[in-house]
């Protein structure tokens, strides 16, 4: 052995006090027990997958139906212009060799983002009952219209309107003259 090593060994031959181990044990007793932890390699992908699933569910969740939506509640046949629009789409789709649903789907997506027209639930119900009553012949609108004829207010004859001539009075004094 090198003499220098002998000197270092003697210098390092120091032992801790007998209370040292007891102090360490006491200190460690106040620490929480070191349990097995889930490795991050397992936890991280699981958390990521959960977050992704939550985002997908939130994005794809359908909006809550309004009490009475004009577009959803009214039967298509009740609106006079809808069948014509449908037939135009159908014809274009047939000409282009594509299905009607494929062509109409983007339009429907686009419409969904527009603000919806809302009608009060009781008004919508009354309107539906009226249309149904007319269809089934329970309600005769012709008699109703005859009973209350549309009367427009008669406009006044143009000859009776008196328009006074426009007169411009000259300015008094020298106001407005440039110096």
């Amino acid at each position: 052995m090198d003499p220098i090593d002998g000197e270092i060994r003697r210098a390092l031959a120091v032992d801790p006090s007998p209370e040292f181990l007891a102090r360490v044990r006491t200190h460690i007793a106040s620490e929480p027990v070191p349990g097995r932890r889930f490795p991050w390699m397992v936890v991280a992908p699981a958390v990521f997958a959960m977050a992704l699933l939550a985002i997908v569910l939130i994005v794809r969740r359908p909006s809550a139906p309004a009490p009475a939506l004009l577009t959803a509640r009214f039967p298509v046949g009740a609106v006079g212009t809808m069948p014509a629009v449908e037939s135009v789409y159908a014809r274009h789709a047939r000409d282009a060799g594509t299905r009607f649903e494929e062509l109409a789907a983007p339009k429907a997506e686009g419409r969904r983002r527009e603000p919806e027209v809302l009608i009060a639930a009781d008004e919508a119900k009354a309107l539906r009952q009226l249309i149904l009553g007319v269809r089934e012949g329970r309600i005769d609108l012709a008699r109703v219209l005859e009973a209350t004829p549309i009367t427009a207010a008669e406009p006044a004859p143009l000859d009776n309107i008196a328009i006074p001539p426009i007169t411009i009075t000259p300015l008094a004094g020298e106001q407005g003259v440039r110096q």
């Binding site: 120091v14 006090s17 360490v24 620490e31």
Partner: peptide, 26 residues
Amino acid sequence: FSVLRHRQDAEEVAQEAFVKAYRRFS
């Protein structure tokens, strides 16, 4: 002790090291 050459300081440092080791013992 080889660094500090002070018994009490050395015990404190060793104790701190053991506590850290215990926290990461798994």
